Computed example of a mutant assay.
Amino acid sequence: MDVFDALADETRRRLLLQLADGAHTAGDLARTETISRPAISRHLKVLREAGVLDVQQNGRQRFYALRAQGLEPVRDLVERIASPPEPAPPVSEHHLDALELEVRRTVRDRPARQDHRQENSA
């Protein structure tokens, strides 16, 4: 199961929010939910398989902790949506280069044209 499928369930999202505060046992997490402890364990299994949870055994207890790297595909998607690439300028750089060249030619030729006009008027 990928991370997006895992996050599609509201219960799993709530569990992740609790785990964002630190590691918890399945029993700790079950106390805040209205579903059974076995159901919580199934949700935790899905989150583990999606790569968003780490599990550490401490004696008879298992502690579940958020694995932030597992959420990178979600973070990448949200960043991409929130920061779309800048649109291309309406004029390409090639055209701007040609315009710059023409401006330089005009500036260079202008004094010569003015001198020529003054000679003709005299």
Rank of each mutant, 00 (worst) to 15 (best):
L19Y: 06
Q56M: 08
L29A: 01
G70C: 04
V74N: 05
F4H: 09
H116L: 14
P90G: 08
V107G: 00
A112E: 15
A50S: 12
H95Y: 14
G22L: 04
R60Y: 06
D109S: 13
R105G: 04
L47D: 07
D9T: 10
N120A: 08
I81L: 15
D28P: 00
R80D: 07
H24A: 11
T11R: 15
L19D: 01
L101Q: 15
M1V: 12
E49K: 10
N120L: 11
R37F: 02
A26F: 04
I81E: 04
A112H: 14
A88P: 10
P38I: 08
L47G: 05
S83P: 01
Q57V: 13
R75W: 07
R113M: 11
A23W: 05
A8M: 05
D21C: 06
S121T: 09
L47W: 03
L19C: 05
V74M: 06
I35P: 00
T11K: 09
H95S: 10
P87V: 06
D115C: 02
L99Y: 09
H24F: 10
D97K: 12
S83R: 13
E119Y: 09
A122G: 12
S41L: 10
R48C: 11
V46W: 02
A8Y: 08
I40D: 01
L44E: 00
R108F: 08
L7W: 06
L77Q: 11
R14P: 00
R113G: 00
L101M: 10
D97M: 11
E119F: 10
P85E: 07
P85H: 02
Q114P: 00
T25W: 04
D21G: 08
S92Q: 05
F63K: 03
L77E: 10
G59C: 04
